[in-house]
Design a protein around this nucleic acid. Structure first.
Lengths: 195, 195
DNA sequence: GTCTATATCAAGATAGAC
DNA sequence: GTCTATCTTGATATAGAC
């Protein structure tokens, strides 16, 4: 007999699976509870309210994304490949248990024009990780002077890849397009800094 | 005494202003009715239900976007400037009456994992306009062979610009970043086709 | 901590008069 | 077509027992 995950874990799993594929507002608490096989009071005892559950699910998600991305960075050999590793990392991440229709963080941000402080922090931590790690990885490729600008352009491209998934596009193709676009931008930036 | 717009127009104005800045699900019908100074039954007589109102607001929005974009294309002189005109068009569009937090179409798509046929058509018409016009404008710049691929990469960049607005970024700066990124991509594609 | 049952509330939609 | 008033539903959260 297999040990069942705790009610807390089951709730997080269900919330992640449902809210980030169907949308948070479109996912009633009842449905999460049924999927997790957990009683209402248990949810509120653990997380306070629906938003608390979502915030915690986002945090757990960011940890997985951080790890998956770092794995791909470590696996890459050249500095340019490490900078581009965010695209294979996205493929890896999406093939794992962390299902989402496009991006859990952008999705919640889109649904929450006035987020609470707790939620806002969870959302910002995703963007901060994205920009900061891209910046670090960009320095060896284009130098400190161009690294911030390049990081922002790459974040824009990755965000575009995620957004294109809402336009009924094939995810694998879009990731490949983004990868190719980013490579062109990196090389154009690198050329301009090493004449 | 100024003639007041019809109840229908007032409803569309209010729906556009509220639902596309706050989110559709986060905007109760009551609030739209109050802003439009219209009674509930009038809304349902004109549009059937809330979704009907949103669909109609999206359609009207796409017409405006189409016009604003075409204006900027016509104002541009070179073929490359016409292809890049989508970025100044976005600035123009956002400075007009059609307010939105990021993009009304992507926002509704994000909130609607299982759209009705009517809504799905309204959403797809936006993506179709985007890709098709970019394709037309790309042909004189990079030739028929590369035009489709370039159009898709530019759509990805524009979608990235819109998505970055959810990451608490400055809209004007993001549009400028996208413009510069697109210019690099276009020139890299043009170079590879005219050796 | 977890359950069943339920209170509370907000939102979409409609009835019926004018 | 438009108004006031209201019906109905569905969702979040809580009460109280075990």
């Amino acid at each position: 007999m297999v040990a069942q995950p705790s009610a807390r874990e089951r709730l997080l799993d269900a919330a992640e699976h449902l809210a980030f594929t169907q949308g948070v507002a479109a996912t009633p608490v009842d449905v999460i509870l049924k999927q997790a096989n957990v009683a209402p009071a248990t949810l509120y005892a653990h997380f306070g309210n629906k938003e608390g559950l979502i915030v915690e699910a986002l945090r757990r998600r960011l940890t997985r994304w951080d790890q998956d991305w770092q794995l791909e960075v470590d696996a890459a050999t050249t500095a340019q490949e490490k900078l581009l590793a965010v695209f294979p990392a996205l493929s890896r991440y999406r093939s794992g248990p962390a299902t989402a229709r496009w991006c859990a963080f952008l999705s919640v941000a889109a649904e929450s024009p006035h987020p609470s402080q707790l939620l806002d922090e969870a959302l910002r931590s995703d963007t901060e990780l994205l920009i900061e790690r891209l910046h670090e990885l960009a320095v060896p490729v284009v130098g400190i002077g161009e690294a911030q600008g390049l990081a922002e352009r790459l974040a824009l491209i990755l965000t575009g890849v995620l957004g294109m998934m809402l336009r009924a596009a094939d995810p694998d193709k879009v990731i490949a397009d983004g990868h190719a676009t980013a490579k062109t931008i990196i090389e154009a930036t690198a050329v301009s800094t090493t004449p």
